[in-house]
């Protein structure tokens, strides 16, 4: 009996110690980690738009974040968009599933706090009333150049082989894919992990909406010249040559990675769903915004 008590005591102390060490490490590193993730995201966004440190984005380019929520009221389900307005305030616009406008509520939110998920959701909840069910769905960044829409950035998550794959997708104003970046994944190294290689990601580049809508995975080997064009950085192919080959394969399906068909089709289907749904939702949102004369900066 005494033995058991000592065992319990020692194991508890050991667990507490381990917890303390991990907690301390978490507190010490969390800020830096979040900062890194944020910096990385910004870098990825700019590189997808074609800017880099050497070629910074001009001042006329601005990014506007738009957050989509699901709002439940009893049995009714509506979609809510948290939009920035031209005068710097925020507004929450709800649209029902059939695409008709429901309500517009002003949200008391400071721009700096909009990026914090907790504070943002709280502010939205306060604005629409606490009795409604509110669930954060996703985020879209509308990029404008001199007030005109230039591109859309869609951060998204979709199921991969083992767990979720986080990706960032850049679309043109006519929904042609500008680029794809894999932000996080836990696919198998050497097989599924190849999804973050240039020759896979770049296959999505330049595919128009119509092609993306029926995009599939194809299990034939990647043609030699296409591979060279996809890995332009490595093979040293000229920009013109790359553009010509890219165009030639533009309407092709995605060539699957060898030994990782599931990961390949997971990314393909994920991208397909993201683009399709976004194009559909944006059309509805744009119509509502025009009908209700809601002035957004994009």
């Amino acid at each position: 009996m005494k033995d058991i008590l000592t065992i319990i005591f020692r194991l508890t102390v050991a667990c507490l110690l381990a917890g303390l060490v991990m907690g301390a490490a978490f507190i010490a590193t969390n800020k830096a980690k979040k900062h890194n993730i944020h910096v990385n995201e910004q870098k990825v966004m700019l590189s997808l738009l074609g800017y880099s440190e050497k070629k910074p984005a001009p001042d006329s380019v601005a990014m506007h974040e738009m957050y989509r929520y699901l709002v439940g009221e009893g049995e009714e389900l509506t979609m809510g968009y948290l939009l920035p307005l031209q005068d710097g305030t925020f507004s929450f616009v709800t649209i029902d599933l059939a695409g008709t406008f429901v309500a517009q509520t002003p949200v008391a939110l400071v721009a700096e706090k909009a990026t914090e998920e907790g504070e943002r959701t709280q502010a939205v909840g306060a604005a629409i009333g606490a009795d409604k069910l509110l669930r954060y769905a996703d985020q879209t960044i509308v990029v404008t150049d001199n007030g005109k829409r230039m591109a859309y950035l869609l951060p998204g998550r979709f199921p991969g082989f083992k767990t979720f794959i986080g990706a960032m997708l850049a679309l043109d104003q006519d929904f042609t894919i500008r680029g794809l970046e894999i932000m996080e994944h836990e696919e198998d190294p050497g097989l599924g992990a190849e999804i973050d290689q240039e020759y896979f990601k770049n296959q999505f580049k330049g595919k128009p909406l119509e092609t993306v809508k029926k995009l599939e995975v194809k299990k034939t080997p990647l043609p030699e010249e296409y591979l060279k064009a996809l890995e332009a950085g490595k093979s040293g192919l000229g920009a013109e040559e790359v553009a010509r080959i890219q165009e030639q394969y533009q309407d092709d399906d995605i060539y699957a990675l060898t030994g990782a068909t599931i990961s390949s089709s997971a990314v393909t289907n994920g991208v397909k769903a993201m683009v399709k749904k976004f194009a559909y939702r944006l059309a509805i949102l744009d119509r509502v915004l025009a009908e209700q004369h809601i002035a957004t900066p994009f």
Binding site: I7, R10, A14, A18, M22, A25, A28, T29, N30
Partner: peptide
């Protein structure tokens, strides 16, 4: 305690793995 060696080892390894993971991610 000799009878809880293995749980203690696992706990130690898990702690270090977590700490190293967090430190790497941060710095």
């Amino acid at each position: 305690h000799p009878r809880i060696r293995i749980p203690t080892y696992t706990l130690t390894i898990a702690t270090w793995v977590t700490v190293i993971d967090m430190v790497l991610a941060a710095y």
